[in-house]
Design a protein around this nucleic acid. Structure first.
Lengths: 207, 207
DNA sequence: TGCTGTGAACATATTCACAGCA
DNA sequence: TGCTGTGAATATGTTCACAGCA
């Protein structure tokens, strides 16, 4: 394996590959070619081979890939090979749905703490998590939580981010529809549901 | 304005620009430079100017941009200048949150129908929408609904997509963690929450 | 003078096409 | 023979740098 900078786009695709591979493994598949995996995932076969090539390649010429091996390798690359505690801030409609969301577990994420500013909610339990007040946010440091999900309204988002970072968080999944200013060492991925919906009409036929 | 193919990446950014501009307008701002808008949105000023240039440019040299004009122009480009009815399929935790989500309105989207396969839910009302059975899906054609949100479990997603397309839908926002095979005339945007979370650790310092 | 609009330079990403190994 | 791994070719996207207009 020669050193080369791994493209961000490759990293963006790897979790999707992993998701598909875990599904295929559960279905009983043991081996797969880049062609078949590409068909299943809706991507180009060369893309898959190229993506893996940045890490030296995981396949056997003439044979394809061993699924369990791919799963292990991708997990290692993405640093998903150890379980990670995650905190949620904002237990409104969306936050509550995230607390119950079953999809995080396959990547080793464990939602272990939830925070909200609403006194009505503090102390209540949802999906086996007791909701704490915002004042308790610094407890994420003691719990060694490095990843947080922000699901609060826009006006509160930046301040919550600042507080989380203060408490040692270095990875944020942000659902607030705004840019978060953070230090370079902190990685933010923003999901804006309405914004994603808003680019559909452009591509749709008939005005 | 000379013809040039508009990059997909430009279209992907425009809804975010629109979101920021609507916010700035509500704050009372009337004019803005590409530099200030870029700072607010966390992007590069040239990028904004270049993006607008694909449509001929909307600014005044030496002065900047008139915010209300930008809002109008971007809305027209994205075909968001008329209200659009939207259907939701899958009223679980996530679907229920989406029914209550206030962020769609600024783009003119109106969630007008919701469907679920669970007999327990059919007939119940959430966020002023009465939940219908999957059998009623073809009613989206009569209601002239062209956009749908899929928030069902993976095993059901492809079939729901097929049915929606059968009923005239040409734009889908998909929350199921899988690739949807659709005809070329149909545009799908997939949001995979767990997958977005899963690329954080790679970028985070200290293992 | 100040900021836009834009060609040109640069950077990144995708796809092709085939050598090379099991 | 069949499929991977990968250099090369192509395509796409971003940033620079400055001409040109208000």
């Amino acid at each position: 394996m020669r050193y080369r900078k791994v493209p961000d786009e490759t990293i963006r695709r790897l979790p999707g590959y992993l998701n598909g591979l875990l599904f295929l493994a559960k279905q009983g598949h043991e081996n797969i070619s880049s062609h078949n995996l590409a068909e299943f995932l809706g991507v180009n076969p060369s893309q898959i081979r190229k993506d893996f090539s940045y890490f030296g390649g995981f396949g056997i010429r003439g044979r394809g890939y061993e699924i369990q091996n791919l799963i292990k390798q991708i997990g290692k690359i993405l640093k998903l090979d150890t379980a990670r505690p995650v905190a949620l801030v904002g237990v409104g409609n969306l936050g509550s749905a995230l607390l119950a969301y079953p999809g995080f577990a396959i990547y080793g994420f464990d939602l272990v703490a939830a925070f909200d500013s609403d006194p009505q909610k503090i102390g209540k339990t949802k999906s086996n998590i007791t909701i704490e007040g915002i004042a308790g946010l610094d407890s994420v440091r003691e719990k060694n939580i490095k990843i947080a999900i922000i699901a609060v309204p826009r006006p509160a988002a930046q301040q919550i981010a600042d507080t989380l970072i203060q408490a040692g968080v270095t990875g944020i999944l942000n659902f607030a529809p705004c840019y978060l200013k953070v230090p370079k060492k902190v990685k933010v991925v923003t999901i804006n549901i309405a914004t994603d919906l808003a680019r559909l009409p452009y591509y749709m036929p008939q005005a």
